[in-house]
Computed example of a mutant assay.
Amino acid sequence: MKPPAPRSIGDLRNLTPARVALGRAGAGLPTQALLAFTLDHARARDAVHASFDTQALIAGLQEIGLSPLALSSQARTRGDYLRRPDLGRMLDAPSQRLLANSSGGGCDVALVIGDGLSPTAVNSHAVGLVRHLVSGLAGEGIGIGHVVIASGARVALGDEIGEIVSARMTVMLIGERPGLSAPDSLGAYLTYAPRIGRTDAERNCVSNIHAAGLSGEEAAFKVAWLIREGLGRRITGVALKDESGDAALQRIAKPV
């Protein structure tokens, strides 16, 4: 048998978007690598400060059959949001009143879509993920009760929203901190029995949702699994291990 051809560090560049084997020019980077770094850094900064397209999100969710409510945190400007993370974890007074007046009875799942640190990610991927999620939950007999689009949102804002509407679980879709290889990464955070004061240890997270990472369909499958198991076991967070991969393998292996 012919021995395999030797591999070089340059081959690794075909397997990862990480910055490896860039070469050098004297004591610095080659011009092409430096320009690529500068461009990716600019894209990450732009993602943080991009406009949150709430109207497009509302229209897209309405096409799926959902009726979203637009709310705001106490972070009035993007500067306030970045300098004061605590303001992004609390609804402003008008939003509190509006949500309380429209809450009605409790629900199994409250869906919150927040801009987070990358509105670009939410604008690009949220509606597609929700479309797959609604379809997946329908097969489980689980409905989404309340849908909120929250501006100036941090993850913990979903706790207050879920508490006000008496949701058994909150699912927060939010733009993740942009990286140099993924300025448009979306994250999904699930919290059982949401209320103000919940910690990150009490949440499950499905992250890295973008074109070069987890697809919307794959992410929706994981989120739907966590919703079903979280509601059934009455837990989320470190007590709930994501074993959706086992279910996916069983689904693939199941004979048609």
Rank of each mutant, 00 (worst) to 15 (best):
P3A: 14
P6S: 12
P6F: 10
P6V: 13
R7V: 11
S8K: 03
D11V: 01
D11K: 00
D11P: 02
D11W: 01
L15V: 05
L15W: 09
T16N: 00
P17T: 00
P17G: 02
G23T: 00
A27N: 11
L29D: 02
Q32I: 11
A33W: 07
A33G: 10
L34D: 11
L34C: 09
L35F: 03
A36R: 15
F37E: 08
D40S: 14
H41M: 10
R43Y: 12
A44C: 03
R45K: 14
A47E: 06
H49A: 14
H49C: 12
H49R: 15
S51P: 09
F52R: 00
Q55T: 14
L57A: 06
G60S: 02
Q62R: 11
L66H: 05
L66D: 02
L66K: 05
S73K: 04
A75H: 00
G79W: 08
D80Y: 01
Y81V: 04
Y81D: 01
R84I: 10
R84L: 13
P85D: 05
L87V: 06
L87A: 04
G88L: 01
D92C: 08
G106E: 05
C107M: 06
L111W: 10
L111V: 06
I113P: 05
I113G: 06
L117T: 03
S118R: 07
S118G: 11
T120G: 08
A121Q: 03
V122L: 04
N123S: 07
N123P: 06
S124Q: 12
A126F: 03
V127Q: 01
G128C: 06
L129H: 01
L129F: 07
V130P: 03
R131T: 14
L133R: 03
S135V: 12
G136K: 06
L137R: 01
A138I: 08
E140I: 10
H146R: 10
H146P: 07
V147C: 15
S151V: 11
G152F: 07
R154H: 12
A156Q: 08
A156M: 10
D159H: 07
E160A: 09
E160R: 06
I164E: 05
V165W: 08
V165P: 05
S166Y: 13
A167I: 05
T170Q: 03
V171I: 13
M172V: 15
G175P: 01
R177G: 05
L180C: 06
L180P: 00
A182R: 08
D184M: 07
D184L: 08
L186E: 04
P194Y: 04
R195V: 04
I196S: 13
I196Q: 11
G197T: 03
G197P: 03
R198E: 02
R198L: 07
D200G: 02
D200V: 05
E202V: 04
E202H: 06
R203M: 02
I209W: 01
I209H: 01
G213M: 07
L214V: 15
S215L: 08
E217R: 12
E217I: 09
A219F: 02
K222R: 15
V223T: 04
A224M: 02
A224N: 04
W225P: 00
I227T: 09
E229T: 12
E229L: 10
L231S: 07
G232N: 10
G232V: 00
I235W: 02
T236A: 14
G237T: 02
V238E: 15
V238Y: 13
V238L: 15
V238Q: 15
K241N: 12
K241M: 12
D242S: 03
E243G: 11
A247T: 11
I252F: 14
